[in-house]
Every structure is written in C-alpha cells, then in structure tokens.
Computed example of a mutant assay.
Amino acid sequence: MHQTFVDLLENNSEHADQFQSRFDDLQDSQHPSVVTICCSDSRVLQDHIWGNDEPGNIFTCGNIGNRVVQWADSGPELSGDVLYPIAHTGTETAVVVGHTGCGAVTAAYDDLTKGLSEPASISHCLELLEPHLEPALDLLPDDIDRTEAINRLVEYNVDRQVEFLETSEDIPDSVTIVGVVYDFQDVYSGRRGAVYVINVGGETSVDTLGEEHPEIEAHVERLWEY
C-alpha cells in the first residue's frame, strides 16, 4: 500500500478520536446553512478557508472551475450537487468560490485562444466553462499579461456562475447568492488565504457592494469592473 494512503488512515484515526461526539445530532439528518461551490484545486481547502471544523455546517461541492452547471439532454442545467442542499436540507446561502491562478480557467482560456488537446472527460468540463468565458476575451484590456488576464477571467467566471444561479427557476428568491475569490498568490491585497467578495446577488460594483453590505465592506475587492 502506498505510504500516502497509510498516512491518511493514521490521520483519520486522530480525526475519529476528536469527533466522537460531534455527530450526535447529525446522524439522521443535516441542515447546513450554506452550500459552497469550490474549485477542486488541492490548494483550496474547502472547510478550512472558513475556519470550519464542525460537521453539518457547510455543504461542499467541488469540481474544476467551480461550476454550477451540468449538461443534460435538454442542454445546460443547474448542477444537482448544488441544488440538492437548497431543495432538500433548507440551505439558504450559496457561495461560488473561485481562486487565483485557476487551472481550469487557464485551460479554458488557452483552448479558446489557441486550442488544446485534452482527454474527452476534461474537454467536457472545459466545454461547460468556455461559453461563459468567451465573451470576456473581447473585454480584457490590451495591456495586461497572460497571468493578469486569467485572474480577471477567474472573476468573470465567478460572475457567470452566480448569474446562472440567480436566473435558475430552481433557486428560490430567498436564497442569498455570493461570489468570492480565494487568493493565495498575492493578487489582491497581499493577504494569502483571504477570501474577497466580488459579487452579491449579481451586484458587482465595489462601491455599491460596500454601501449595501457595510458589514462585509472590508472584504470587498475586485480586479476589474467590466
């Protein structure tokens, strides 16, 4: 057996010792207050970025590109992974979590600009992202480099995923939808590991977000307002 997995099991033993009583009220049902849709990048620790170590608080979804969209016979649909907690566990907040230097956004950008050859399953994921990203290519400033372009597309992708949630008939109006970017590359204010709010319910203006939500104003920041 590979030592990596042996180490994981040893770590799980410590976890089990600490969590013996934490499932007492959760064994038969769950009612998480928030569903997060994160990129499955190994650098994005879905629970840890919120300081969460309690089961039952956060319903986590992960995929490359933090997508809320899946493909059905009828076309693009809201992912069942995202809809399930909202429809069945009373979850009333959804947070789309992008991150700086996203590999999925990078791959989509490269495929749109010069073409890539990827296995079919990866190409399928990129094809779910690319229609949402392609319009942004004409909006990017001419004087930015590739890295800067990709981080702006990260924001644009989060905006589009929020928009898809906002316009979905399956999401009740009572659900609060937020878009954020997790930064571990000193792209924003230089605080590694910080979450920056870029979108609330479709609103993307930094000034307006600060005025409408003063309690989170210190966490609001964007790279561009297109």
Rank of each mutant, 00 (worst) to 15 (best):
T93I: 12
E134I: 06
W50Q: 01
H15L: 10
E217H: 09
E221D: 10
N12S: 10
D28A: 10
F164I: 09
A94Q: 08
V34G: 03
T167C: 01
C61M: 07
P135W: 01
G201M: 03
E217M: 02
A149K: 14
I177S: 02
S174Q: 12
L140M: 12
E148I: 03
P214L: 07
E134M: 06
S168R: 05
E221G: 02
P119E: 13
D24I: 11
E225M: 04
A108M: 03
T147D: 13
Q20E: 13
A120K: 13
N151R: 04
Q185N: 13
H2L: 05
I150C: 02
C61H: 11
P55Q: 04
Q3L: 07
I122W: 05
F5L: 15
R192S: 12
S174G: 05
T176K: 08
R152Y: 02
T4M: 06
V187T: 07
R146W: 10
E163V: 00
E92T: 15
S79A: 04
D7V: 07
D53G: 09
V97A: 03
E54V: 10
Q185G: 01
L26F: 11
R160Q: 15
V105C: 06
N12T: 14
S21Q: 10
F59M: 02
L8I: 15
V97Q: 03
E217A: 15
T93C: 11
L140S: 04
E118Q: 12
H99K: 04
A194W: 07
I144R: 08
F164Q: 13
L165C: 04
D170G: 02
S33Q: 11
T60F: 00
E211T: 15
I150E: 11
T176L: 05
G103W: 14
I177C: 01
C102N: 06
V220C: 10
E212P: 08
C61I: 14
H219W: 07
G201I: 06
G51E: 07
L139N: 11
F19R: 15
H31F: 11
V187R: 01
H132L: 04
G101Y: 09
P214F: 12
L26A: 10
R67E: 04
S189E: 15
L223Q: 11
V178K: 00
G65E: 04
D186W: 03
L209N: 01
Q3H: 14
D53C: 01
F5P: 04
L9R: 13
D41G: 00
G90I: 09
D41R: 03
P55H: 03
V34W: 05
P141K: 14
E169V: 05
H15N: 08
D145R: 10
W71F: 00
Y196D: 02
F5A: 11
G62D: 02
G80K: 15
W50Y: 11
E225D: 15
L209P: 09
H99D: 09
D7Q: 11
A149F: 03
L45S: 10
I150N: 06
T113N: 13
A94R: 05
L129N: 09
R152F: 00
H15K: 13
R222L: 01
Q161T: 09
I64K: 02
S121C: 01
V154N: 01
H99S: 10
I144W: 04
Y109V: 05
I86L: 12
D53A: 05
T147M: 13
C39M: 08
I49V: 15
D7E: 13
Q30G: 00
T176R: 03
D28C: 00
P172C: 09
I37M: 00
I122A: 08
